[in-house]
């Protein structure tokens, strides 16, 4: 591992946009600087083996480009709202999206802050299966499943801020805390509203670099 220079050297690891405590994630990214060149997949396997079960290192690529963190411009989230009727969620989502801005409040280290939760939301929808029921639910308790794409702006708008927004805009108050999962992170394609693979530029560079070239 590479270390920073100075009086107290630190390992060069940087975590980008860590998901908030209490949320699940399938798309976290970090950059590690190494002192020597290593095969990324071998490193991935070693890291994966030393992490607790459920914390899986899915992929690793060698960095050939700079500004990786800047490419993470948006996240796609899933919010499961147990005991909320999908129809109720749908009308709340409509009210939220129709509003020009939705002011919410959150306790931060600097005290209570008020900000707009609407502008950062690129898309928000309730997922429906053809039969009208939420998917993968064998029992009959209602559950609304929301898909959210949110831009990474300042101040950061988090899924719980959007939930506060749904409450502010339409009085939606889930009886149990939402189960929140980050599904993807990366560059936002404004036209399609999708979040792309942030490692793609480095993968492209890797396929070029497999030809004999300068070594590190």
């Amino acid at each position: 591992m590479a270390y920073s220079a100075g009086f107290t050297p630190h390992p060069k690891v940087s975590y980008a946009n860590a998901a908030p405590t209490g949320t699940a994630s399938e798309a976290e990214y970090l950059e590690i600087a190494l002192a020597d060149r290593r095969e990324p997949q071998a490193l991935r396997a070693l890291l994966d083996a030393s992490l607790p079960p459920g914390l899986d290192v899915l992929d690793a690529v060698e960095a050939h480009t700079s500004g990786f963190a800047d490419r993470l411009t948006a996240s796609r989230w899933e919010l499961r709202l147990e005991r909320v009727e999908p129809a109720e969620a749908e009308s709340a989502v409509r009210a939220f999206l129709d509003a020009p801005s939705v002011e919410v409040q959150r306790e931060t280290k600097k005290g209570l802050r008020t900000f707009d939760a609407r502008a950062a939301v690129a898309s928000l929808e309730v997922v429906r299966t053809p039969g009208g029921e939420a998917p993968d639910r064998p029992d009959t308790t209602p559950c609304a499943i929301l898909r959210l794409v949110v831009r990474h702006l300042t101040p950061a708008v988090r899924p719980d801020d959007v939930l506060s927004g749904l409450r502010a805009a339409a009085g939606l108050a889930p009886p149990v805390p939402a189960a929140v999962t980050r599904l993807a992170q990366g560059p936002l394609d404004e036209e399609s509203g999708t979040v792309a693979d942030p490692l793609a530029p480095d993968r492209d560079a890797t396929s070029v670099a497999t030809a004999p070239g300068p070594t590190a």
Partner: peptide
């Protein structure tokens, strides 16, 4: 219960 407590990671185990 973990979302409602301080430092929930101390209760999850799975250490190397």
């Amino acid at each position: 219960l973990l979302p409602h407590v301080q430092k929930p990671i101390q209760y999850v185990g799975g250490e190397l």
